[in-house]
Design a protein around this nucleic acid. Structure first.
Lengths: 192, 192
DNA sequence: ACACTAACAGGAGGGGTCCTCAGCTTGTCA
DNA sequence: TGACAAGCTGAGGACCCCTCCTGTTAGTGT
């Protein structure tokens, strides 16, 4: 080891950063409009870069999806802290679940990507998955400690509920959000 | 009007019927293996016909999906009658829900097609959707009449539950069927 | 100020899928 | 048996995915 890390990268080039940002902006718009299966060629085109440039920055669709939803995930994790500090763990859990469904359905197809990643199939980064899982476990265990949430519910099952509710929202016709009632039924079902 | 219907079609040609059957068999196998997004070219190839022949018999993917799942639907409707006659309407409803989730998850992507069709987006035949809806309404109302199922649950919401459970099953890693627990939570949640 | 080089951008190309359509084949009925 | 409608074919245009090779440029050290 020399004094400084042997792999001290050069700072990212200015044009690279510009394109990275432009691609991310375009991707967010396209995913919102057309779901996670939006055309990558169209995203590149919207961003004003060639397709090769998009692949340079985001080697797989999953990396792009993850980058485009990173803010949402951070926001969800922050929300967990806030609502946990506020008071009753069961209220915190239910509020967080509702918020998590919002995040899961940021755009069509995200719930599936998240669930498959949690199952190891697809490949969002493990750290993101792990953060989300840890957060869910914490919320669930705190609520279970009150005795008012079924003790036999696992975190895995909790995430199944969230994914399912998000799927319903994605699939509902616009204007009618079926996930609200579904979530209510679920929350009733997980009480002791 | 003459004595016989003015649009009395010739009987279907024998080779046409053979190909129709072969396509349906191949489609069932391919949908089972690869979900509702299976390649239509591959299905035609498996059936030993050209792609144009497949489109002649099934102008859209939805018509093919519907034909490939018709038996399953019929079987589900029959099951409703059987279990309704057997005894307690709440038991009948819960048993039927479990069976309906089986049908909804005949292959990956079917739950989405069914739900979208119920919402008018996609296009399975209206008659099939209507039959299914009528069946669900009947099961639900009978169960609600006992007072042991929440009276404010609508059939639309019931089908959201079923679709969501089927989605979880489709998305679960093979070997672990998350829909069983999810359905249990849902059934707990819809009781009064 | 300048040359060097790693990082970057570009886009053609091979492979896949979808769906159509003009022309050919064949089963059926008289 | 012959005529004709029903049926079959598969090439083709349009789209998308992802890779990879070529040319360009921004940042760095002297």
């Amino acid at each position: 080891m020399t004094g400084r890390s042997p792999v001290a990268h050069r700072p990212r080039r200015a044009d690279g950063q510009r394109n990275y940002d432009a691609i991310l902006t375009a991707a967010t718009a396209e995913f919102t409009a057309h779901g996670s299966q939006a055309s990558l060629g169209e995203i590149a085109s919207q961003a004003g870069v060639a397709i090769g440039t998009l692949y340079r920055h985001f080697p797989t669709r999953a990396t792009l999806i993850e980058a485009a939803t990173r803010d949402g995930l951070t926001s969800l994790l922050d929300y967990a802290d806030k609502v946990s500090a506020a008071g009753d763990p069961v209220d915190a859990l239910t509020a967080w679940m509702s918020r998590a469904v919002d995040y899961f359905s940021t755009f069509r197809g995200l719930a599936q990507t998240l669930t498959e990643s949690r199952n190891g199939d697809n490949a969002l980064s493990e750290t993101a998955c792990a953060e989300l899982t840890r957060c869910g476990v914490r919320m669930l265990e705190a609520a279970q400690a009150t005795g008012r949430i079924r003790a036999d519910l696992t975190a895995e099952e909790l995430f199944d509920l969230l994914g399912a509710a998000a799927w319903v929202r994605e699939t509902s016709q616009p204007g009618h959000d079926g996930s609200v009632r579904l979530l209510a039924v679920m929350i009733a079902g997980i009480r002791s």
